[in-house]
């Protein structure tokens, strides 16, 4: 049986009177690709932030490779070998593409190795022509791609992506899909996403969130066909 790399038990997050994440039990096997979907306010992003350490859950536990990481800081979680991409592009604007990716690699490798790996990732993501350009001058899709590069270069075993396809063109999304599939060769990947077309093209198992809790968890085809999911997601009042 495959190793469980990420597990949450009874994860609950309250903001005042609002329960944004409600008793979520979640398990992810190594090298699994999992999509989290749900309507706005379903608690996907809160769940994501609790797992990455950006928020400390009110109750419940988070385990990574069997180790409890509840309440850890983001940098401690990332140091375990977890790659994280937040919802809004989070990059170093005044630095070049190469410097951005080098910084990500330097955390885990020495100077020379980091440079070699940065060059390698730049080639794989076809960022060569803009490698010396500052991030602030790039288009949205390119910035998203660079941020994926930041994640990929550190060679993580768990990748957490919050809305990687948001605001991207069809070509960019295709390229993104390829990169994510490449990542699943060595890492488990969790994708929080809105874009149903993107989900259909990439997903295998899908977890559906609704009002903070897990509504169902199944293969993408069965999830799409499910009446309840269609109702909460598409707002059909059958």
């Amino acid at each position: 049986m495959a190793e469980t790399v990420l597990e949450t038990a009874g994860l609950t997050m309250r903001f005042g009177g609002v329960t944004a994440s409600d008793n979520v039990d979640f398990k992810l096997q190594s090298r699994e690709l999992r999509c989290l979907i749900g309507p706005n306010g379903a608690g996907k992003s809160t769940f994501f932030k609790c797992v990455t350490g950006l928020l400390t859950p009110s109750e419940g536990h988070v385990f990574m490779r069997g180790q409890e990481v509840t309440g850890w800081h983001p940098h401690q979680i990332a140091s375990l070998g977890v790659g994280i991409k937040t919802q809004t592009p989070n990059v170093m604007d005044a630095l070049s593409v190469h410097e951005n990716i080098w910084l990500a690699a330097r955390r885990f490798f020495d100077v020379a190795e980091a440079r070699a790996r940065a060059d390698d990732v730049i080639e794989r993501l076809a960022l060569g022509p803009i490698a010396r350009t500052d991030l602030g001058q790039l288009a949205h899709g390119e910035r998203q791609r660079v941020e994926l590069g930041l994640v990929a270069v550190a060679d993580p075993w768990l990748v957490l992506l919050d809305e990687p396809a948001a605001g991207m063109s069809a070509t960019d999304v295709d390229r993104m899909t390829t990169i994510i599939h490449e990542m699943t060769r060595s890492a488990a990947v969790v994708i929080v996403e809105h874009d149903m077309q993107f989900i259909r093209s990439i997903a295998e198992t899908v977890t559906v969130f609704h009002q903070g809790a897990v509504l169902m968890e199944d293969h993408v085809d069965r999830v799409m066909a499910d009446e309840t999911v269609r109702r909460v997601y598409l707002g059909k009042n059958a």
């Binding site: 990455t52 990332a78 990059v91 955390r107 930041l150 550190a154």
Partner: peptide, 11 residues
């Protein structure tokens, strides 16, 4: 340039 990003990279 970006504290959050650097923390998320493990620094």
């Amino acid at each position: 340039e970006n504290e959050t990003r650097m923390a998320l990279m493990g620094y």
